[in-house]
Design a protein around this nucleic acid. Sequence first.
DNA 1: CACGATGATTGATGTGCGTCAATCGCGCGA
DNA 2: TCGCGCGATTGACGCACATCAATCATCGTG
Lengths: 251, 251
Amino acid sequence: MTEQNLLTTPPRHIAPPAWKLSTTSGTEMIEQLLRTYQRRSHAGTVVALEGSTSHVVFCVLSGWLSLSKSMEDGQRHIIDFALPGDLVNSVCANNKTNALQIEAVTSATVAVIPDYRWASLLEDLPQLKNLEDRVIAGTLSRLSERMLRLGKGNAETRIAYAMIELCIRLRAVGAVRDWTFHLPLTQQQLGDFVGLSSVHVCRTLRSLSRLGVIAMKDHMDITIHNIDGLAKIAGVDPRALENQIIPSGRR
Amino acid sequence: MTEQNLLTTPPRHIAPPAWKLSTTSGTEMIEQLLRTYQRRSHAGTVVALEGSTSHVVFCVLSGWLSLSKSMEDGQRHIIDFALPGDLVNSVCANNKTNALQIEAVTSATVAVIPDYRWASLLEDLPQLKNLEDRVIAGTLSRLSERMLRLGKGNAETRIAYAMIELCIRLRAVGAVRDWTFHLPLTQQQLGDFVGLSSVHVCRTLRSLSRLGVIAMKDHMDITIHNIDGLAKIAGVDPRALENQIIPSGRR
DNA sequence: CACGATGATTGATGTGCGTCAATCGCGCGA
DNA sequence: TCGCGCGATTGACGCACATCAATCATCGTG
């Protein structure tokens, strides 16, 4: 049911914004491909192991994935979330080893596209190359912004920024209505994402609630009540967000 | 003089490892291009402003660049360093706006290649595409590793990891001899890189010295005395480093 | 040669966040 | 229906790191 939100809000025939090309024929071609390689993962499933070899590109069709890294002592950090419409090519340099562990946070449908298939598609549809570049640039930009807060921001800054980033990304796929969206995360997971303990995530969320900038309902339904106040806490120019965080060209 | 180290150790005719292609003709073509667009920046110069528009690709030929981001209150974080041989395409999604501020840490020579020129080069030399992919994957991998330590590691872990990462990257361009290399950074800059105050960077470096894993001479000449101990503190498998951090294929 | 500037070093003090622990609330399965 | 378990919440306490401040070392400059 957590995932129902995400499945119903965008058009059901799977065409997240990133995939909307100008040519209709291209779009159809891609949708065909996505359907072919589509797979379903239950919440909590490990989709790809950190360090394993892999020759695929992932495209999220519905649900959330987490991309994480762990230290030897078991400490885990969530480097990024992959939301519907996101493209994930989790290989590291040189060899084809996964740099990140990919897990399904909610139950999710993911297109698992073989490398060679993706490469040939790129040749048929040169516009895709452009899209791929934008996705990569967007990812780097997001990571940088988050890193900045992780290094220099306090708990409120980090949480506020996470809320803004996720809200904007979710809005791009139609999963936000009236500044309200569903966060299918435990406070532990949110903590692993922003670099805080789950206890302190809790305190910080309540602190932000008390300030009136956000509100929470039913275990993680978030409403942003005062985006300007939230942006101020997060240390962002709200206008800059529009261009910086949304990877695809859509509104 | 800081930069002299970097200029003399690699072959003087500018061919950092990333640029070593299998075909000799390709290499010559590229070297020609690099010479054409080569420019010199003094230490401390701002090469590209955060938020400015830009249509270029940077290639570092000698010296260090820092890629940083600032919050409104002036707090700065160094997202990455660009070392000799590194490729920097600091544009964010959608528009052609620099997501990062690029500064010369030491005096540096940088090839500033126009976008269109780079694009046409990619068509002439398909191998370059491969290289570009590896550079991007390497960058993402480095950012992830650093983010993990930033989120979950203590001061010693972060500093130890930074030393290992920089040592390996510098070794790839021949700037390490007998586990010794020159760090052209103030402790303030190193702090902005790992997310610590300059005071605590100092304390941590001295702590690592006392443990005997590293040694320092003359304001930032670093020697790694015990790589296994250092890797243990950094929370890394030393063998994994070889593949994970070096973006190019060279040892 | 004294000087001022910049950065490293070291100590003292404060605090933001982690950790531990107890309680609460809810959903789920027997 | 009761109980079990996971996650949220809240309080108490401690620590790692930031901050402030003083001293020192080095270097370039008039």
